[in-house]
Every structure is written in structure tokens, then in C-alpha cells.
Computed example of a mutant assay.
Amino acid sequence: MKHKVSFILLLLVLLLLGGCWNKRELNELAIVTAVGVDKSDELFEISVQIVNPSQVASKKASSNQVPVYTYHAKGKSLFEAIRKLTSLTPRKPYYAHAQIIIIGEEMAKEGMNSVLDLFQRDPEGRSDFNIIVSHDSTAQEILSVLTPLEDVPASKMFKSLRVSEAVWGATESVILDDLIQSLGSIDHSAVLPSIHIHGDAGAGDFSSNIEKIDSPAQLKYGGLAIFKNYKLIGYLSEQESRDYSFLNNHIKSTFEIIACPEQGKISTEIINSSTKVTGHFQNDLPSISIKLDIEQNVAEISCPLDLTKSKTIDALNKVTSKQIKERLERTLQTIQQTYQVDLLKFSEVLHREDYQAWNRIKKNWLTLYPELAVQIEVDVHTKGVGTATKLKLD
């Protein structure tokens, strides 16, 4: 009996040791760094950017080969298109290392439901990849552009997005989980960064594009793409996108250009921006207050101002505050009245403020929102003026 029990325990241990039954060797996989989704007529088209490991890993890369390859397949569904890719790729595509998902403009206009559903369900993929919309180009065309400095174009897109978000503010990195959360609002609205081909799009997929000092085709981020009810409805300009980041408390660093009293300009570096949004109800009539506290340094000046005087700094603070406030009001009007989307999630602010009052107006929110009263206050403080505090112009 003891031998029988021992035998059963041994079998159980052996079963637990079989954890590598589904392992796959690296040389059996095609590492996907980026995925593109387009709609062509009634068919879905999947494009994948796959690393050429011999080029990326080798210190002596061959000039006859490119660092990445792109493959494309069409199907009646996204899943069918993905499976059809295996008839083209020499190895099975492996999606766990994808950094970027690009949604083609036509696909975005039709709706992202099927795209989100696919990547949510995929057990092999991750949810921390960045989602981007292609503007005036297909996702396939974007993925075909070779980029200088970064051998893998997906890495270029990923790093450019993060750097631009940190020092410019007109872009915003959005991962799958963030997008799904944003689309869970009443009007299912969200924003995504957009990217386009700057220059000669036809030259982007030739190796000569990375062999010239000035690449004929470059990938460039533009304004934020606006979604409502899961569909692309328009774009904010670069300046409006930066204003949106101010309003949404996403500015890490950026700049302002202020006109001097008589001639010339002052450039300032925004080093800190904090936005607080509060909701109010008066007789079930909602309103919103937005307070921005901004810190800046003087970066460049081309007019005769004495920055050692407190009245000069006070005047600079007031002019900067007014300029930012007026611009934010114009952008908010575009978001509220032109696109009529609650991108800043005012509904959630009002719900947190007074959930009972919110429940009473909730059914009328989409009608109330475009005319919602929003008060914006901007308070700018200049912290640094540099070592050259006086400028004399002849």
C-alpha cells in the first residue's frame, strides 16, 4: 500500500514538473514590434513590423539588409487576417513585445470596437502598448517607413512619443487600459496621438531614406485624434492639443512665447503646471471651475526689459496668465461646442461633487454639456530669469 501511495505521489510531482511543455525557442519566433490595423473595402488588413535579428543584434550589420520587415494580410475579420500572416512569415509572429499599435484613419472612422475587442482577448499580448492613429496615411504606410538613428521604427515612434509628451505637451501616450477606461464615459470619448508621414511618403520604405543627412520621409506626431462613440470624429491642432494637456493636468514641461510691450518676444520655459478641476451645483444647474498654477523660467528675450525689477516680473506673470487663459478658453469652446465631447471628464467631476444632484441631471448630460459654464483661472509665477538680467538693444 505504501508503495502504491508513493507511486501516485511521484506521478503528481512529475506532472508539476512539466511546466515547459509549451516553450518556444527564440529562433522559432518572429518578434513583432508594431502592429497596424487598416480597413480596405470590406476587409480588415493587418500589418506587422518584425525585427531582423541578424541586423539589430550584429555590430557589423550588412548594408544589404534592412533592420525590420513588414508583412500584410487581409481577412473578413481581424483574427482571420492575423492567422493568414503565417502563410507569409517564415516564423510564427510573437506579439508580446509589440510597443505600438497603429489604427488606420479609415479604420478609426468606422470604429475601434473590433480592434479593442481583439487585443483585450489576446492572452499572448500585453495591455501596456501605445495606441496611435495614422493621419493622411494608412497604418501599413506608417509601418513601412525606415527611420534614422533608431534601427527599429517602432522604437523611434515609442521614444518620440514619450519625449514629445515630456517636453512639448502636444502629444499624449495612451495605452490600451487607459483607452478602455476613457471610452467607458457617457459619450464614449477619448483622445489618441496621431502620426503622419512628413515629406515624400513614397521614399520611406527605401534604404536610401536612412542613408541621407535629411531623410526624404520622416514620421512626425501631430495633433490629438478625437473619438466619440468609439469613432474618430476629428483632430485638435498641435496648439489645441497642448492646451488640452494643460486642462487635463498632463503638462510636464513646455514653453510660451510672449510679445514684448513694444517690440520683440520673450520665450519662457514652463517647468511646472498643476490643474485642479472642481464641480458645482446650484439648483441642479452644473458648472465647472478650473484652476491652473504654473511656474516658468525666462529662456530667451529680445527686448529691452530689466528683469531685476519686481514690477517687470509681475507684468510678465500677468501677460503670460492672460495669454494662456484666453487660449484655453478657445480650445475648451472647440471641445465643448464644435466636437461636443466630454474629453476632460467633467461628468466624473460632477458625480464626485454631488452624486445625488448628478443622478438627477445625468439623463440630460449630453444636452447640457455643450453649454456647461466653465470658469478658468490661471496663475503664473516666474521662478528664474537666468544670469543675463538686462538686455540692451541698439
Rank of each mutant, 00 (worst) to 15 (best):
W21K: 09
N22C: 01
E25V: 05
V32A: 02
T33C: 10
V37R: 04
K39S: 11
F44P: 01
I50G: 03
K59Q: 13
S62I: 04
P67I: 09
T70D: 06
H72R: 11
A73N: 08
A73V: 03
K76M: 10
L85M: 12
L88A: 13
P93M: 09
P93A: 07
Q99K: 15
I100H: 11
I102R: 06
I102S: 09
I103N: 01
E105C: 12
E106S: 15
A108E: 07
K109C: 07
E110Y: 15
G111L: 11
L118C: 07
D128N: 14
S134E: 05
H135C: 06
D136M: 11
L143V: 03
L146C: 09
E150R: 05
V163C: 03
I175M: 14
S185Q: 13
S185Y: 06
I186V: 14
H196Q: 12
I197P: 06
G204P: 07
F206S: 15
S207P: 00
S208Q: 15
S208K: 13
N209D: 05
K220S: 10
F227P: 03
S237A: 04
Q239G: 07
D243L: 02
I258H: 03
Q263S: 15
S267Y: 05
S267C: 02
T268G: 14
I270H: 03
K276A: 08
H280F: 12
D284T: 05
K291Y: 11
D293P: 00
P304T: 04
S310T: 08
N317T: 00
S321M: 01
E326M: 01
R330C: 00
Q333I: 01
V341H: 00
L343P: 00
N364Q: 15
L366F: 01
Y369R: 05
Y369W: 06
E377F: 06
E377Q: 12
V380R: 01
T382P: 02
